[in-house]
Design a protein around this nucleic acid. Sequence first.
DNA 1: CAGTGGTCTAGACCACCCT
DNA 2: GGGTGGTCTAGACCACTGG
Lengths: 264, 264
Amino acid sequence: MTAAPEPRKDGMASEEMVWPDELFLDLDRNGPVPLYFQVSSRLEAAIRSGAIPPGSRLENEIAIGQRLGLSRPTIRRAIQELVDKGLLVRRRGIGTQVIQGQVTRQVELTSLYDDLRNSDKEPSTTVIKHAVIPATDLVANMLGLPAGADVLYLRRLRSTDDVPVAVLENYLPPEFADISPENLEARGLYQILRSRGVGIRIAQQKIGARRAQRDESRLLGIDKGGPVLTMERVAYDNTGRAVEFGHHCYRPDLYGFETTLVAK
Amino acid sequence: MTAAPEPRKDGMASEEMVWPDELFLDLDRNGPVPLYFQVSSRLEAAIRSGAIPPGSRLENEIAIGQRLGLSRPTIRRAIQELVDKGLLVRRRGIGTQVIQGQVTRQVELTSLYDDLRNSDKEPSTTVIKHAVIPATDLVANMLGLPAGADVLYLRRLRSTDDVPVAVLENYLPPEFADISPENLEARGLYQILRSRGVGIRIAQQKIGARRAQRDESRLLGIDKGGPVLTMERVAYDNTGRAVEFGHHCYRPDLYGFETTLVAK
DNA sequence: CAGTGGTCTAGACCACCCT
DNA sequence: GGGTGGTCTAGACCACTGG
């Protein structure tokens, strides 16, 4: 780390046009990685490391293209990726600037398991219940199955470093009934689905809060009737077919949801 | 409404290629609205109305372009908009399909005030506190101001149809100290900022839960120590300067957060 | 005025999927 | 092999911003 990129106190954007000397000279034109992605990921790394400081302006798109030997649309797409991530801001007639203020990670479409792994925790799972049951009307509707159809019901306790963090309840179509409890204790659910060729592409979530119910307070080690953070999710695969419905509750002192919103 | 677009029970995607007869013949090439946006919004309306049923396949991009007299990149961008919204799914070598399963609204970068207005409620606001105070270290850090700098502190109670929904606490840079309580009771905060030429472009949010504190339970009309849903937000303007920091708590039985996540 | 991003075009080649 | 989306190019015109 060099000098800390402290925010300016005068409200003006700094306009130095800094470019980390030739950090973009190893583009692979033949490999499978798209050029716009190679550019955007190198650019993102330079911003997150502070090599391109907050508030600084980028060169215009054509100039960057000439510098890298790429066309303007390719550069434009690379920049757009970072605008969507909230790292850059574009203004017509002005230029492109690095955002001021600390940058954080985006909430991606990942499972809790992956979230925890990525934050240096060691997640573990206990399968509390694993059974094929007839779907309630709610579950059947969410999964697009006929009422009363068989579904796989899972109830799991997710912990990090042996501290319980969440109670996870899931419902899956019956074709997944052969997913074993042992498998579920070793890997995340989305990881298992992916290895079976089922890629999750879209999910709809609702986040809320309520009192801990029934045995949730005991499982999570919190006060009886204490607050829990809840998340309900329906996940769809490539074809838009509903693959998983779940409602989960989290210990609010150990887990929360972070998002970056970018206005269109 | 025609026949209800009920989900298929056999797990196969329907592949009829339906096109609402010539719904795209009134493109305005000279107006200020981009062509890709005209296409995507008409397409979105057709999908949400059921005119293009769930699971149906679209024509390929070039054919659509010829039909509308537009180039492939323009069509591609229109389709991409709807993919990002979670309405369409694209697969290489296969085609583009309408998602199966009910579609809901996206969480946009809007204020609670706008959210409530859009859902047919009548929001009202009571300003509980309106004062210029020295910033705590946390607030100064979030807003990028020197420690102890003056900030405008707001505490508001937001209700719909006279039922309290949320307690909102905000901190703004001192240049906004002239925003009057009367103004705040008539309009949303983001609306006021916009009318002063301050457009919010990026916000970072953290969502969590905890027990109601102090007088929050009284203000919200819930049990003492009952659960509340919390949201903390830092909002940045065009230039990436922090414009607003707030932490809010919501009655969990009256409000929640919905999101659609799309994997990249 | 010159410079910037926003949009649009008309091609091209490739990787992937199905049959 | 034929069709699809994924990527890339080399131009063009426009709207907006600043001095």
